[in-house]
Structures are given as C-alpha cells and as structure tokens.
Design a protein around this nucleic acid. Structure first.
Length: 398
DNA sequence: CCTCCACAGGAAGCGCAGGAGT
DNA sequence: ACTCCTGCGCTTCCTGTGGAGG
C-alpha cells in the first residue's frame, strides 16, 4: 500500500514539470549579477574602496541598515568587482560575528583571522596578545591592502566589547607593507553610540546607510529573481505583488520577500499545482510564521518552555482571562511532575515577559479593583501553531 | 473617601560558569 | 595552574498601584 502511494507521488513528481527552474536563486546565499535599487550604495562603496586600485589605503567603512536591506550583498558584490580589477590580489577576510562558537570571543575571532592565512592555532591555551602578534606578522608578510569585513559587528561589540576593534583599527600604525581596512556591517544603529569615541571615529570614517526597500522596489527585486528561479509562466499574476506588500509591511525586508516567494513555490509544488497562486503566498506566510515560532520555542530554556506549557494547558481548559497567579499554580504542578526546580513567581513573571517579547503571548497589566492588579495573558498563536507547539512540548514534558 | 487585593516590577545580592590576566 | 572578573539566572525584599467594594 505504502509503496504504491509513494510511487504515485514520485510519478507525479517526474511526470509534471515543477514550478522551479533554479530554486537556489531565491536563497540568501545567492549573489545575483544585478542588484536593483542599490546603485547609489554600490557606487558609494565603490568610491570609498577604490583607493585599493592605486594601492592606497581606503577609509574604514561602517555600513548600517535593517535586516534584508542588502548590506552584505552589496558589500560582497563591490568587493568582488574590486578584486576582479586587481586580478585577485586584494585580500579579503569575511567574518560573520554572530556565528556562535566560531567568532564570538576575542580569542576565537583572532584564531579565525589567523586561519584565513592557512595557519591553525590551538583552540585554547595561548595568550590573546600572542595571537595578535601572530595575526600581525601574517598580515605584514603580504603586500598591499587587506579588507576585513565584519558582518553583524554589533553582536561582536555586545559580546566582547570594543577593545578588539580598538586594537584592529590601530594595527595600521605598526604595519609596514600592508594596510588593513575594516568594513563593519550592522543592522543596529544605536550601538555605535555606546562605543569608545576613538573606535567610533576610526571605524566610521565613512558611512553608508541602507534604507528599507519599499513595496515597488521589492517587486522589482522579486520579478528579477523569479525569472531565474521559476519556469516561465508558472508564477501567476499578483503573487509577486503580494509577497512584496507583505514584506514591505515588515520594515522592507527583502529576505522575507524572497523567503515568501520561495516557500510559496514549494507549497505549490507540494500541492501538485503547476502554478504558484496567491493562496500559496498566504500558506507560505503561515508556514514561515509557524516555523519561526516553533524554532523559538525549541531553543528556549527548559524553564521557559515549562511556563509556556502552563499557559497552553490553561488555554486548553478554556480558562478565560488568565493571570500570572493562575499560570504559576499550573507551573508548579508541571515542575513537580517533571522533577524540575520550582522557580519563584517573580522569576516566572519575567519569563512571561520574555514570551511576550517573542510575540508568543500578549500580556497587559490590568486592575481588577478589589481583586488585585495583575497581568492578563493571552496566547498569540494560530490554532495550527498551538497544536504543533503543544506536540513538541508534550514530548519534552510529562 | 479609604482599603486592600494580587500582583508589577525595581534594587540588591548570591552562586555559578567560563573567560581574562598572571 | 591559579586567582580574579564578569555576565547570567535566580532569589529576596521591597515599594507602588488601579479600582471594586465597603
């Protein structure tokens, strides 16, 4: 039985022409040749970095803009073009500072930098400044310019402070043959104010701002990409407009727009449609939403999951106007059942606030007069999400 | 008008882990 | 290898508060 139906599925797959021609072109990792609506920024970056062609040191650049505004894309595009001009002689080090366990401490970042020169360094044990020396020596062995791209640089500063940036910006004073230029990329603008003024000024000798895309700009981007990604005529009208509009509502995030389009295509294929329809976009949005919330709950610490389960149990019982105390009572029971340490109500209250921040619940402070002042907590999830999260939590807890 | 409920949410401090300095 | 030092999760203690009921 199972085999027959599987065969049918496979047959359906092979027999039909899928909607995708090249799905890769919709992923964030893909670098298109043409980047619409970023001509200004690319030109600006090009002008800032152009001195490398004359073997002079360009200014350090600080790039900021919200997620999905094309910062990393434009930076890597510009640098690649620049590198082509120099016949690949331009050395570029790209580091994403948000990668956990890779580059989230001073030591790890330095060992990353060193490994770019093909030298491996022990995971731990060496003093930090000997790593600096090593990096310095490796750097100075080469000629000309080295570009250091620090993506999500705000994460680095938040984690380890600005000392490392201070050291890196000063390194040029010592270097003889090479020059190091830092390209910092951040989606948080305010963090730069917390930095040491010296670091701030040397890091942002030049600044490039990436504004959010509006709906029509997003539409252009999607139109271009969809021609690469989909077979001709498989995207019905209105689909791209819908994806653009949804993503524009969320601070003009091109990544979200591309995700929506890609998942809509996947949904269409799975449902056996030969065309991507507007309804598929709705389903895609739901799926992305659910996946995201599920991912959040999965990565949440156990205590927080326990609190969420308490809220879910109360919801299933149909309790109206859930308040902190109710949740705490259920929470205690779940902890006992699961042999978990019972935290104080004060702490649980904070955990509820965290769930609120994630958008999983909505809580608002209300006063019930004689019957006290508390927070009214409501689940902020669709029915399908509740079931999926519940299924996950039921596996984790008794 | 006052009271008093059921908490909110700030402040201080504790114990721990893991990194930095030596 | 050894002490600091720092950040984090958490507890303890605290003061503050909107409004129903007296």
């Amino acid at each position: 039985m199972a085999q027959i139906s599987l065969n049918e599925i496979f047959q359906g797959y092979v027999g039909r022409r899928g909607v995708f021609k090249n799905k890769e072109t919709l992923s964030i990792a893909f670098t298109p040749d043409n980047i619409p609506h970023r001509e200004e920024q690319i030109k600006q970056l090009g002008m800032i970095l152009a001195p490398v062609l004359r073997k002079e040191k360009p200014s350090n650049v600080f790039i900021y803009g919200k997620t999905g505004t094309g910062k990393s894309l434009c930076a890597s595009h510009t640098i690649k073009k620049l590198s082509d001009q120099t016949n690949g002689k331009l050395k570029t080090i790209y580091i994403n500072c948000k990668m956990r366990r890779v580059s989230d401490t001073e030591y790890r970042l330095l060992s990353q930098l060193i490994s770019f020169f093909g030298v491996e360094v022990p995971y731990t044990g060496l003093p930090t400044d000997s790593l600096y020396k090593k990096f310095f020596n490796l750097l100075d062995q080469g000629e000309g310019n080295t570009l250091l791209v620090l993506d999500e640089i705000d994460a680095l500063v938040k984690k380890v402070g600005d000392g490392i940036l201070y050291n890196l910006t000063r390194i040029n004073q010592e270097l003889k043959k090479t020059k190091l230029t830092i390209v910092g990329i951040s989606n948080n603008i305010s963090f730069i104010n917390d930095m040491d003024p010296r670091v701030r000024s040397s890091l942002s000798e030049e600044e490039a701002v990436f504004p959010p895309y509006n709906a029509s700009e997003l539409r252009d981007i999607l139109t271009e990409r969809s021609q690469l990604a989909f077979n001709p005529g498989t995207v019905s009208s209105g689909v791209i407009e819908k994806c653009s509009a949804l993503a524009a509502q969320e601070h003009g995030d091109a990544r979200k727009a591309l995700d929506l389009l890609r998942v809509a295509g996947e949904v269409a294929e799975r449902m056996g449609n030969e065309k991507v329809l507007k309804e598929h976009v709705d389903l895609a949005e739901k799926k992305l939403d659910t996946d995201k919330t599920l991912e959040i709950t999965k990565t949440q610490p156990r205590q927080s999951q326990c609190v969420l389960l308490s809220i879910l149990e109360l919801f299933r019982k149909g309790t109206k106007n859930t308040q902190t105390g109710d949740i705490y009572d259920v929470y205690i029971q779940i902890c006992r059942r699961n042999n978990l340490k019972v935290l104080t109500q004060r702490r649980v209250s904070d955990l509820i606030s965290e769930l609120d921040m994630f958008g999983i619940v909505n809580s608002k402070v209300i006063s019930k007069g004689r019957y006290g002042r508390t927070r009214e907590i409501k689940l902020n999830l669709s029915g399908e999400m509740i079931t999926r999260i519940e299924n996950f939590l039921k596996e984790e807890f008794i």
